[in-house]
Design a protein around this nucleic acid. Structure first.
Length: 578
RNA sequence: GCCCCCGUAGCUCAGUGGAUAGAGCAUCCCCCUCCUAAGGGGAGGGUCACACGUUCGAUUCGUGUCGGGGGCACCA
């Protein structure tokens, strides 16, 4: 079997040799792209038009000169001048025929692009506060981040996935308080439950569990709890903070138990939910450890040494305006407590110190104003902020009965990721989440997603895979034996179209990695499935002459492999039967 | 007020500094004696929001305008 030669790089090298003769002085970048129309060849090159101005020559004339200088090649059928000066290159079928065996032989390595070069990359995503179940908004970040991590891995990066656990902030205190108040209700204490505390039933469940385990051990009287607390109607947040302060004072060391219980419970739930969704992490990084280990002090000190921190009104400020932010930011409040921002600075400095050449954060689009601040802080600490890339994911807006549904965790009125998965299935959920590019708002129509509709694109792709499996199972042979098939017999238009499509997979993976856009994989798979279905209807596989049968089975075996790997990147299963 | 995203077919959305701008859904017409019809083939449907600029060439890049969504805490 002749070794497979990538047609694109082959053509690029032919053109380069030709250009050395025609335009050695002003070698342009050689661009080869796939024309939309088959009549324009397999690849088109616009180099003549780019050169025409510098060389003061008519582009069509230049193109003619380039074509005349092209070295002989067994793979090139012909080269034509077209339109204003395109060079359209037509390849012989032989250029593609070897692809099937090549792809099958390479296996998982076939999709492996080359942009990554083993570079260490960290991707942090989801990182939702562990204060309640994940909702459908978190689901998009989870699906996007996990798919992107897979894309990067396939493209040759050394990827680490991390979840930042906000276990130290006010939100956790509110959850602990909410749980305790529900617990007090079970103890028979008449305490008003604040409207801005966590309303969800899971809070009551945790309270009931604590009550069952410890009975009235954490009971305090309603009067003590409400002591000195401002009226909720006048100052709702102050009301909450005063209740938290009372809880800490009244419970003493026991407060840590309630807090810890709620945290473990919710984090465990989140972890299970994500694992079931096919989303896993290598590390779970605790915000609390930043406070305890003194990393925040160190981070602020580091910025101070570079002269970017000052004191005003008793608070410590970071001069972020010096780094393009619109106003300076507080890092340590008047009350001596560090802000969330300060912890985040320490966290990002820590990420850099862990040896990643690139750090990727996946954030909700509402955090966009936060980017200059964090980047500025990294610069202020003397680090290269360009190593941090923030991928913003727009909101997934949920529609129920044609109406927007609320997704606030505190109000308790949201559709959980778990509910969504249960209703539409993991495959459809994962696929739909990444079908839109991340900058695009995602309208998730629950009713539509719930209805088991047949026009579902994920089924279309899975069906292509199942169809191949069906043929392969009827055949019953060993896949590896097909590698010796005579692929020169693959001449039908549908066969060649499929071969060309398969050849695009590695460059598609590279593009998806470069653009941080897993959705291009989804669109590629739709195209690949369409080519397979086209072939399936046009050609028979099993009841043809043995050599042709082998060649066609080789082709669909390679296609199956790419379908499976591609779906795997998106976290979608590739069923053998449907 | 400032900042971010979006504006492409009736709908939901891809896409590209190039040659006739695509897909799915919806509408209409055709294709199972045959390895899965959850499939295939065809038809209709467009001022790529608008204006100006950069360019040999702009739907793509830049600026502005209009429209939709989101964000601008000593919250996290």
């Amino acid at each position: 079997m002749t070794p497979y030669l990538d047609p694109k790089s082959h053509l690029a090298s032919l053109l380069e040799q030709a250009l050395l003769q025609v335009a050695a002085d002003s070698m342009p970048l050689i661009e080869l792209d796939r024309p939309k129309q088959a009549s324009h060849g397999d690849y088109a090159c616009n180099v003549a038009m780019q050169l025409s101005k510098a060389m003061k020559r008519n582009p069509r004339e230049l193109a003619q000169a380039v074509i005349a200088a092209l070295p002989a090649s067994t793979l090139l059928e012909k080269a034509e001048i077209a339109g204003p000066g395109f060079i359209n290159l037509f390849l012989k079928p032989a250029a593609w025929q070897g692809l099937a065996a090549h792809a099958l032989e390479q296996g998982a390595a076939f999709g492996g692009g080359n942009v990554g070069r083993g570079e260490k990359v960290q991707i942090e995503f989801v990182s939702a506060n562990p204060t309640g179940p994940l909702h459908v908004g978190h689901g998009r970040g989870a699906a996007f981040g996990a798919s992107l991590a897979n894309v990067l891995k396939l493209a040759g990066y050394d990827v680490q996935r991390e979840y930042y656990v906000n276990d130290a902030g006010r939100q956790m205190d509110i959850l602990a308080l909410s749980t305790w108040l529900r617990y007090l209700e079970l103890c028979g204490e008449l305490v008003a439950f604040p409207g801005n505390a966590y309303q969800g039933d899971y809070v009551k469940s945790m309270a009931a569990a604590i009550h069952a385990l410890h009975q009235t051990r954490y009971q305090r009287t309603a009067i003590e709890v409400a002591q000195g607390v401002p009226d909720a109607g006048e100052d709702a947040e102050g009301h909450l903070d005063a209740l938290i302060a009372n809880a800490k004072r009244l419970l003493g060391p026991d407060y840590a138990y309630i807090h810890g219980y709620a945290l473990e419970e919710q984090l465990g739930d989140t972890r299970n939910d994500l694992t079931e969704f096919g989303v896993t992490f290598d590390t779970w990084f605790s915000e609390k450890t930043l406070h305890e280990s003194g990393l925040i002090d160190r981070a602020v000190e580091q910025m101070k040494q570079h002269g970017h921190v000052y004191e005003q009104n008793g608070a410590l400020w970071f001069r972020s305006t010096a780094f393009g932010d619109e106003k300076d930011r507080v890092v340590r409040r008047e009350n001596g407590i560090y802000t969330y921002f300060a912890a985040d600075i320490a966290y990002h400095i820590n990420k850099f110190e862990r040896g990643f050449s690139r750090v990727l954060d996946v954030w909700g689009a509402d955090h966009h104003g936060y980017i200059p601040r964090v980047k500025g802080a990294l610069s202020a600490a003397g680090l290269d902020a360009d190593r941090l890339t923030v991928a913003l994911v727009q909101f997934a807006v949920l529609y129920r009965n044609g109406q927007k549904a609320s997704m606030s965790t505190r109000s308790g009125q949201y559709v959980t990721l778990r509910e969504l998965r249960g209703e539409v299935g993991n495959d459809a959920a994962r696929f739909f989440y990444v079908l839109r590019k991340s900058e695009q708002h995602l309208d998730f129509d629950l009713d539509l997603a719930k209805s088991q509709s047949n026009d579902n694109p994920v089924y279309y792709i899975q069906y292509a895979h199942a169809r191949i499996c069906s043929v392969m199972n009827s055949w019953g042979g060993v896949e590896r034996d097909l590698l010796d098939a005579d692929s020169g017999l693959l001449r039908e238009p549908q066969e060649l179209a499929l071969l060309r499509r398969l050849a695009e997979f590695p460059e598609t993976v590279n593009a998806a990695a470069r653009e941080l856009s897993p959705h291009v994989i989804a669109y590629y798979l739709k195209d690949l499935a369409a080519d397979l279905h086209g072939l399936y209807v046009a050609c028979r596989f099993l009841d043809v002459d043995e050599p042709l049968k082998q060649a066609r089975l080789l082709l669909i075996a390679a296609t199956r492999r790419v379908l499976r790997d591609g779906l795997g990147v998106l976290g979608v299963s590739a069923p053998e039967k449907m």
